[in-house]
């Protein structure tokens, strides 16, 4: 079975959208629907933050890759998603069309960015420590475990000063790497509840079709039904991403080939780590 995986928001821009017909069509759609010039990475109007640009860039790269896979007639048996990868995953499973997904990504990003106008937030990528070490550390510094990617790769989110202290403590505690990045909002934490009402209004504006291909969610690893999707889009922003569990569940479901559709290869690398621990 083939599984198409959609990664979350990239942490940096990594190359431009290819300049072919599909790349041009997606760039045009991004410009028309969400007012971002992907070529220059400049807003075409009021716009929003750098983080929202990254979210749209990530979604556009995923949509481009999805088009190519469809042209190659790659059979997709399962669709999986990580964090904001849910948006292009909705296209892959036939739930929403491309244009609406770009708009949903933009509107959600703009809403999240409002949190960043009140307080400074950051993410920390911590590599090398176990959950058993990192979880108590996160509690000590008042930040949250946001992504459980593998047994040794975690993302934490919270107030910027606390995250920076956590990153320093993680390094002092033996982490192989602990880097912090400013962000608009503490994604995948309960702090998002502050704007839950606004987010609920946004996700309620769309009509979600039943997935034509099973769409496995990263919270409890079950396939999403049409009626689950709006609520999931809200919940996923307030709860951690459990990628390792998701990957293991996908394998258990029979997935053998995993194709990453997006900017970079983070999910492929996490899967490699999980496989190597399992002796595969």
């Amino acid at each position: 079975m083939n599984c198409l995986m959609f990664p979350g928001q990239p942490l940096a821009f990594a190359g431009k959208l290819p300049q072919d017909e599909d790349g041009a069509a997606i760039a045009e759609m991004v410009a028309q629907r969400v007012f971002l010039d992907l070529d220059t990475l400049a807003w075409l109007g009021e716009g929003s933050t750098e983080q929202v640009k990254l979210q749209l860039y990530g979604a556009a790269m995923s949509l481009y890759r999805l088009r190519k896979l469809r042209q190659e007639a790659v059979i997709v048996d399962l669709v999986a998603e990580h964090s904001m990868g849910i948006y292009p995953a909705l296209v892959a499973s036939g739930v929403l069309p491309e244009g609406e997904v770009l708009e949903l990504t933009f509107r959600t990003g703009v809403c999240l960015a409002r949190l960043g106008k009140v307080k400074e937030y950051a993410l920390a990528c911590v590599v090398g420590l176990s959950e058993g070490v990192l979880a108590p550390l996160s509690a000590t510094y008042g930040v949250y475990m946001a992504n459980y990617n593998t047994s040794r790769h975690f993302l934490l989110a919270g107030e910027r000063s606390r995250i920076e202290q956590l990153a320093a403590a993680a390094l002092a505690g033996g982490a192989f790497s602990a880097q912090s990045y400013p962000c608009d909002a503490p994604l995948h934490t309960p702090l998002i509840a502050e704007i839950a009402g606004q987010l609920r209004q946004i996700v309620a504006d769309y009509s979600y079709a039943a997935p034509r291909v099973p769409l496995i969610n990263h919270i409890d690893q079950r396939p999403l039904a049409a009626g689950d999707i709006a609520e999931f889009l809200l919940r996923e922003l307030t709860l951690p991403v459990y990628w390792e569990r998701t990957y293991l569940a996908l394998r258990e479901a029979g997935a053998i080939t995993f194709i990453e559709a997006g900017a970079g290869e983070a999910l492929k690398k996490y899967n490699r780590w999980i496989d190597s621990e399992a002796g595969r």
């Binding site: 790769h153 192989f176 790497s177 996490y270």
Partner: peptide
């Protein structure tokens, strides 16, 4: 390469050569 790859190399070095990279 990135930090995900680097940790994979740390493990591989220990496994194949018995050599430890103790800290960042």
């Amino acid at each position: 390469l990135d930090s995900i790859d680097a940790l994979q190399l740390v493990v591989a070095m220990e496994k194949e050569f018995g050599v430890v990279v103790p800290d960042a």
